[in-house]
Each structure stands twice: as structure tokens, then as C-alpha cells.
Design a protein around this nucleic acid. Structure first.
Ligand SMILES: Nc1ncnc2c1ncn2[C@@H]1O[C@H](COP(=O)(O)OP(=O)(O)OP(=O)(O)O)[C@@H](O)[C@H]1O
Length: 679
DNA sequence: ATTTGGTCCATTTTT
DNA sequence: TGGACCAAAT
């Protein structure tokens, strides 16, 4: 294994293969690279690859690490054992799939996403015969979530009565999920923990299996993840964690910086490695990042230096509206492409909230610039996608009430809300699923004949599609063809088209769904039988919401939130919407988490390799109307000497009154003079 | 039972 | 702005 392309500290971390190691270092110092090399080094030293576990923060990071490792291990053959490189949640899913029966689940359990979690909770709450009006399930779910991620109820008590309610509902909620043979996202951690705690043989197995454990982005692990790591490594202590306390940005979902900072307490024999050379950014960018993060009181100070020279200064711009801000970004990207031959793919636009992507998408489309939008609930939250997945889950398990209730009357087939309500009540009375209640209704002759016929037809559909899944010895059976078949039969396509006024929007939905369906025949799906391949598909789309990058080769600008950009790097970065209420976000101001917001800004800045453009707007579209906006206080933390303030020549920010005048002029169709000189 | 058209309302971040 | 929810018409 050639370690020549590492610096001395990095090499030390790679070669320290035994016992606990912590790398605590700033952005861009090669922490992730060390993990990758460490895996390769372990393998080169003769450690069987499948004894190695590396946990990453995102599926994307896992995939990247696998690819880099593949390039480094040139001698590895196709069938060779591979190290396990995945997220905590994927690891949990694998573990639980193997041992589901130990926890009273069946192996073919499905994973519920946030909206299914809320539906399940709603169902449980509706059974509560409480006089007091109950809170929105969407308010309760996050607390259950936090609890499963390791937060004690006492720690959640500040959320008032809701946390008490959450606590009292937890048992029923879990029963409801189990009845559906479903786990929610947090169960992948919580139940994995339960599995390892209650079943010593499984724990022993895992400890033997994963003799070398590495965790990236350790500053953003929560209590449950920490406990998982602790259980796995308590014996052999071969654990290498890497992180940067300044990049902890997931406190809102239970991340504990102390997991990283208290490493010496948890693993007294830990070897601490510090990395100080940044290989990513120019010194201008680094200095700006350092200047900003210095304003945080709670942090470990770090040295950071770079050999990349000073580079261009940071440019700060102001715009009258978010629309114009987006257009300006598009213009800059085109200027760079035409004038300096910079491909689109070298640019990223970073923002605080997914909503902000809208204006950018519009502007980029108008300028005919290709882009890809990372994350954003968009795709898997589309109605047609949810419907389709619910159908699949229903075919896997007819007793999955949540999925059944979603699609029972989609498209409309005579099973109205009233009918389903009644069936639901029947199911409670008979302690069975809604599907069983349907059968009972048939036998007992409940409902009108017409409704009974509808029920019978629906049950026939479910049973016959299930039969096709489970008893198809046909070689070359195509899940895609199968799915398109029943979607056609039930008239889903027509319903989809009919429900949309705009024909283009309808076709868009159809195409969306077809894209997803085509993944059903994907080569990565594991399993011999159609049913097991379907489970594999469902698991894949549940765990990795990121849409398969269509044409990886295509040159495109990246649009991404500041949260999702952690760990990535781009030659040219635009950070947009640096406004009070957005960054820091209003909610964070209310919740007193300013330092985390500042870390978010720090993460965003440190993604840039060569150039950084920051902007804010004087007004932005809010509820369909332009509302005034003010520059973020964080902007003042950028050293003047590093920043070119373009446009805002004078430099004095507009007063709210001047800003209003400026909008009035714009609305009136007058050509306004430039901001800053106005008034 | 289903569709329609209206009103009201929101607003972080993600595995 | 547009999505979610609800009441009245088909
Ligand atoms: N020794 C080295 N020589 C050359 N390039 C390096 C070296 N170490 C790291 N790099 C490069 O520096 C960049 C940042 O590395 P990496 O992503 O591993 O850093 P990181 O510490 O994980 O960053 P972050 O904390 O921001 O996620 C990458 O492009 C990587 O290839």
C-alpha cells in the first residue's frame, strides 16, 4: 500500500491500525481520505476485507468511498469479499433483515418514511378516546423520533405536554408498526440496539464480523449511533473516528458533539491525531471561514493552512429580489463557461432551505443551464410515487394497514372514506388488519352489495398480484413489466392523467413514475425471486432518497442545501440568501442555536476550492409576495480585506424605508437606480 | 360516492 | 405561491 500521497500525520493515522484513534481536524484536511486509505492499508496488511466496517454520513459518501477504494485495490477481483461501507441506517437495515424474527418481525419488513410514520401515528391517536383535542401528529412524531435516537424523555420534557403524549403513545405506536410489519427510520437504529443488547449471540457475531470500525463525520452522530459503535467496539477497541466539531450541524436531530470531544473519556487509550494542512481551498477562503467560526464560543481552536495561495477575493453581492439573485448566478455561470471554459459541473449553489432552489431552477432553466438538485423532498414525496410504493408494500404484505389505507380508493373504486372508516373500526374490534376485516365483511355480508363487490374486486387484485410475485417460476420475469401491467389494469395511468389539468404536468408525473418503475429491473437488486427483489428495491428506495443520477456523465451545476453539502467540494461556490431569518434561520434564532447556524455557514464556505461568491437580497418571494429581507449578521464576520463588495458600492446598507421605495419603483415599472445609490 | 371549487394556511435542516 | 383541507354540487 503506497502511502506516499499522505502527509506525516495522515500516514500516522493510517498506520495506527490497532486500538482507538481519533482524528480531530478542520475542513478539507483529508479526514475522509485517511479513512479510505486506512481501509486499503488494512486490507493490504492482510485483514480480511469483510472484517472492516466504515460508516459514512450519507449513502452518497459511502458510494464514493467504495469507488475510490475500488480504484486503489487494483488487484481485487470481482467476487472478492468487500468491506462494509454504509450509513448507520443501512447497517441497521442489514442487521435487522438478518435477525428480524428475534424482535417479532418478519424478514420482509418494510421501512416507513416520514409521512407513513405520521400516518401510523395518526391512526394510533385516532383510537385514543380523549376528549381534549389532540395535537397534530406531525408535532408528536419528531419527539418519538428523538427518543428513539437516544434522547431521554426527561431531556425532551421542555417540549411540554407533547412530549408526555409522545411518551404515552410510544408503545401503541410500536405495536401498530409491528402489526404492519413495518419499521420507521429511527427503528433501524433503535431496534438494532435492542437486538444487540438482548441477544448476546448476535452481538458476539457482529463483534467478530466487524473487527475494524471507522466512522466519518463523527461530530454528527447521536446517542443511539454512539451506543451502537460502543457495543461493536467495546471488546477489540479497534475504532477510528474522524470529525470536526466546527462542522456539527445536526444537533436538531440529536447529534452530540461530545461524542467526538469526549472521545478520550469514552476510550481512554485513544490516540489523537490532528491535521492542519487544508488541501482544498485558497487561503482567502480559509481565512474567511476561520474568521467566521471564531465567533463561536464553544469550540476547539484549530490551525489551518493551505498551499493553494491567496486566490481570488470573495465577492459579496446584493440583489433586489431572489429572482434576480438567481438570474445573476446563472449569468455568472454562463460567463465563466463562455469566457473561461469553466464547465457547469465545477459550480455549486448552496442555500439554507430547499425552497430557495425554486428561483434557482427557474433561472437556470431559462438560461438553458443543466443542473441537478440534490435532496429536496420533491421526488419521493410526489403523490404518484407514494401511491406506487404503497401498492408495492401492500402486495408484499396485505396486512400493512397504512399502505392499504393509502391506496384502497386510488383510483376511486367505490371504497369511500366512510367504508374504510368502518372497516378500520371492524379491524380494531376483531384485533386484525383492515385486510382481514375486508374478508370478514364478505363472510358476514356487511355493507351493501355494491360496496361488497368493490371490496371483493380489491381483494382479488391484491391476492392475484401477490400470487404472481410469490409463485412465478418463470425465468426472465420482469418486475417492471409486472408493475406496468397492474397499474394499467387498475386504471392508474388514466387517473393520473385525468387528475391533472395541464397535460404537460400530467406527462411529467407519468414520466416520473416510469423512471422509478424502470429501477425495478435494475441490476443491483439482490434476490432470486421476484418477491425478494421487490423487498430489495423497497429497501433501497427507503434508505437512499437520492434519485439515481441520470447520466452521471452529464455536465451540470449542483444545487444543494448547506446541510447536504457537508463532505463535498467544488471549485466555484455560490452561497445565496445570506439573510436574517434564513441564515440564521428564524427558528434557530428562536431556539437559540445560533452557533449551529454559524457552523452551517462555516461548512458552506469551506466547500469552495477556488472562488466563493456570496449574496443576499433586499426582498424575497414569500407567500407569493415580495417581502423585505435584511442582510445576515454573519456577513459582518467576514473580514473586509478578503471581500469585494460589488454593487453595494456605498456600502451603506439600505434602510428599510429606502428598500420599500426601491420596490415601489420596481412595481411601478420604473427603471430603478442601483441600490445603494438610491435615495 | 366522487368531484369540484373554495378557503385557509404555512414556512429548516435529513438518515 | 400553492398545497392541504373542507363543504357543497353532481
Ligand atoms: N495528502 C494529501 N495530498 C493531496 N491531496 C489531499 C491530501 N489529503 C487530502 N487531500 C485532498 O483534499 C480534499 C479534502 O479531503 P477530504 O474530503 O478527505 O477532507 P475532509 O477533512 O474529510 O474534509 P471535510 O471535513 O470538509 O469533509 C480532497 O480533494 C482530497 O483529495
Amino acid at each position: 500500500m503506497d502511502l506516499a500521497s499522505l502527509n506525516a500525520q495522515q500516514r500516522a493515522a493510517v498506520e495506527q491500525t490497532e486500538g482507538p484513534v481519533m482524528i480531530l481536524a478542520g475542513a478539507g484536511t483529508g479526514k475522509t481520505r485517511v479513512i479510505t486509505f486506512r481501509i486499503a492499508h488494512l486490507i493490504a496488511k492482510g485483514v480480511p476485507p469483510d472484517k472492516i466496517l466504515a460508516v459514512t454520513f450519507t449513502n452518497k459518501a459511502a458510494k464514493e468511498m467504495r469507488e475510490r477504494l475500488g480504484q486503489m485495490r487494483l488487484r481485487a477481483a470481482k467476487g472478492d469479499p468487500q468491506p462494509t461501507i454504509c450509513t448507520f441506517h443501512s447497517l441497521g437495515a442489514r442487521l435487522l433483515r438478518q435477525h428480524a424474527e428475534r424482535l417479532g418481525y418478519k424478514r420482509n419488513f418494510v421501512i416507513y418514511n416520514e409521512s407513513e410514520q405520521i400516518s401510523a401515528l395518526k391512526k394510533v391517536m385516532s383510537q385514543l378516546s380523549s376528549k381534549a383535542k389532540l395535537p397534530d401528529p406531525a408535532e408528536v412524531a419528531p419527539l418519538i423520533s428523538r427518543h428513539k435516537n437516544g434522547a431521554a424523555w426527561t431531556a425532551l420534557a421542555r417540549h411540554g405536554t407533547i412530549s408526555a403524549l409522545a411518551k404515552s403513545l410510544l408503545g401503541k405506536y410500536q405495536s401498530a408498526l409491528r402489526a404492519c410489519n413495518a419499521m420507521d427510520f429511527d427503528d433501524l437504529l433503535a431496534l438494532s440496539l435492542q437486538l444487540l443488547r438482548e441477544h448476546e449471540d448476535v452481538l458476539a457475531d457482529c463483534r467478530g464480523r466487524f473487527q475494524y470500525v471507522m466512522v466519518d463525520e463523527y461530530q454528527d452522530t447521536n446517542a443511539a449511533q454512539f451506543e451502537l459503535v460502543r457495543l461493536l467496539t467495546a471488546r477489540h477497541q479497534n475504532l477510528c473516528v474522524v470529525g470536526d466539531d466546527d462542522q456539527s450541524i445536526y444537533g436538531w436531530r440529536g447529534a452530540e458533539i461530545s461524542n467526538l470531544l469526549d472521545m478520550e473519556k469514552h476510550f481512554p487509550k485513544v490516540k489523537v491525531v490532528k491535521l492542519e494542512q487544508n488541501y482544498r481551498s485558497t487561503n482567502t477562503i480559509l481565512q474567511a471561514a476561520n474568521a467566521v467560526i471564531r465567533h463561536n464560543a464553544q469550540r476547539r481552536a484549530k490551525q489551518l493552512w493551505s498551499q493553494k495561495g491567496e486566490g481570488r477575493r470573495i465577492v459579496l453581492r446584493v440583489f433586489p429580489s431572489d429572482e434576480e439573485e438567481a438570474q445573476a448566478v446563472a449569468r455568472r455561470i454562463e460567463v465563466a463557461r463562455v469566457g473561461h471554459r469553466v464547465p457547469w459541473g465545477r459550480h455549486a449553489v448552496l442555500f439554507r432551505t430547499n425552497q430557495q432552489a425554486r428561483a434557482l431552477e427557474t433561472a437556470l432553466r431559462a438560461a438553458r443551464i443543466r443542473y441537478h438538485l440534490i435532496g429536496g423532498q420533491s421526488y419521493f414525496d410526489r403523490r404518484e410515487v407514494k401511491d406506487f410504493l404503497a401498492y408495492l408494500k401492500l402486495f408484499v404484505n396485505p396486512h400493512d394497514d397504512i399502505s392499504l389505507l393509502r391506496v384502497a380508493n386510488v383510483p376511486a373504486r367505490g371504497l369511500s372514506d366512510a367504508t374504510m372508516e368502518r372497516l378500520l373500526a371492524e379491524s380494531h374490534a376483531s384485533h386484525g388488519s383492515v385486510f382481514s376485516a375486508m374478508r370478514l365483511a364478505q363472510e358476514r355480508g356487511l355493507f351493501q352489495t355494491r360496496t361488497r363487490d368493490c371490496l371483493a374486486a380489491f381483494m382479488r387484485l391484491v391476492e392475484s398480484e401477490r400470487a404472481k410475485l410469490h409463485s412465478t417460476p418463470v425465468p426472465g420475469f420482469s418486475l417492471r413489466a409486472w408493475a406496468e401491467g397492474w397499474l394499467q389494469d387498475i386504471g392508474y395511468w388514466d387517473d393520473l392523467r385525468r387528475g391533472e389539468k395541464d397535460a404537460e404536468a400530467a406527462e411529467h408525473r407519468v414520466r416520473n413514475l416510469k423512471d422509478l418503475i424502470s429501477m425495478l429491473d435494475g441490476p443491483e437488486l439482490e434476490g432470486e425471486t421476484p418477491a425478494s427483489r421487490l423487498i430489495s428495491f423497497l429497501e433501497q428506495v427507503s434508505l437512499d432518497r437520492e434519485r439515481e443520477e441520470d447520466e452521471e456523465a452529464g455536465d451540470a451545476v449542483t444545487l444543494i442545501t448547506m446541510h447536504s453539502c457537508k463532505g463535498l467540494e467544488f471549485p466555484h461556490v455560490f452561497i445565496v440568501g445570506l439573510e436574517h431569518g434564513l441564515l440564521p434561520h428564524t427558528r434557530s434564532i428562536e431556539e437559540n442555536t445560533l452557533e449551529e447556524e454559524r457552523r452551517l455557514f462555516y461548512v458552506a464556505i469551506t466547500r469552495a476550492q477556488q472562488t466563493l461568491d456570496i449574496s443576499y437580497c433586499l426582498a424575497r418571494m414569500k407567500y407569493g409576495q415580495l417581502a423585505p429581507s435584511h442582510p445576515s449578521a454573519f456577513l459582518q464576520e467576514l473580514p473586509e480585506a478578503l471581500v469585494d463588495r460589488e454593487d453595494a458600492k456605498s456600502k451603506k446598507p439600505l434602510s428599510p424605508q429606502e428598500a420599500r421605495q426601491w420596490f415601489a419603483q420596481m412595481k411601478g415599472g420604473l427603471e430603478p437606480s442601483s441600490p445603494g445609490t438610491a435615495g
